[in-house]
Amino acid sequence: MSTTARTTATPAASSPAAKTAKKAPAAKPAARPATKAPAARAPRTPARTVKPRADLESLPVRPGEDPWTAEEIAEVEGDLRAEVDRLRADVASADQALGDLLRDAGTGAGDDQADTSSKNFEREHEMSIVNNARDMLVQSERALARIAAGTYGVCESCGEGVGKARLQVFPRATLCKDCKEKQERR
């Protein structure tokens, strides 16, 4: 018998306690702290300075509108960044409230049907708020990405200009007025 065979065949090495001791370090995965997705954090997004870019003239505008200026883009970008920060905080607090509601989802001993229905309504309402805030956060982040890519203001349907005035009022807009009207008629 070889030396490796003797060491594995010894009673001490084949005892259940020895097997558990060998497996215990490998069986324990590294403990990760329970954290939420990026929506759980609410750090302030650092403001970028908009440098005068030559591609500002290439951002589409509707007929009769003046071209975008660096100050206008900086203002829209600043508003979007502030909105992203606010929405991240909203999503984090709504996630917390939703988690509390889900923990208390069971029916209590003294709850009647009205109490249970009220809890269900409150939970569904909170879920709706969280989903709306997440959708707006995604739209705002996409608008910031379009600004960075130089495609801000291009209609995603027809490729024409969304409209400078429309984007200054609703900076997350991705469709021009005509395409949005067509979409709403469907």
Rank of each mutant, 00 (worst) to 15 (best):
T4I: 10
A5D: 08
R6Q: 14
T7W: 03
T8H: 05
T8S: 02
A9F: 05
T10K: 11
A12T: 15
A17P: 11
A17G: 15
A18M: 15
K22F: 13
P25C: 09
A27L: 14
R32E: 11
R32S: 07
P33Q: 09
A34Y: 07
K36H: 11
A40S: 10
P43A: 15
P43K: 13
P46M: 10
P46I: 07
A47M: 09
T49A: 12
R53Q: 09
L56N: 13
E57T: 13
E57F: 06
T69Y: 05
I73T: 10
E77I: 03
D79T: 09
R81P: 00
R86E: 13
L87T: 00
D90G: 00
S93L: 06
A94T: 05
Q96M: 03
G99I: 15
G99T: 06
L101D: 06
L102C: 05
R103K: 14
R103G: 11
D104A: 12
T107Q: 13
G110M: 10
K119Y: 02
N120E: 10
N120A: 15
E122P: 00
R123G: 03
H125F: 10
I129T: 15
N132Q: 12
M136E: 09
V138H: 03
R142C: 06
A143T: 06
R146C: 06
A149H: 04
A149M: 09
G150E: 13
T151W: 00
T151E: 10
V154H: 09
C155S: 03
E156S: 09
E160D: 08
G161L: 02
A165K: 08
L167F: 04
V169H: 04
F170M: 14
A173S: 13
T174G: 10
L175V: 05
C176Y: 00
C179H: 05
C179G: 02
E181H: 09
K182I: 10
E184N: 10
E184R: 12
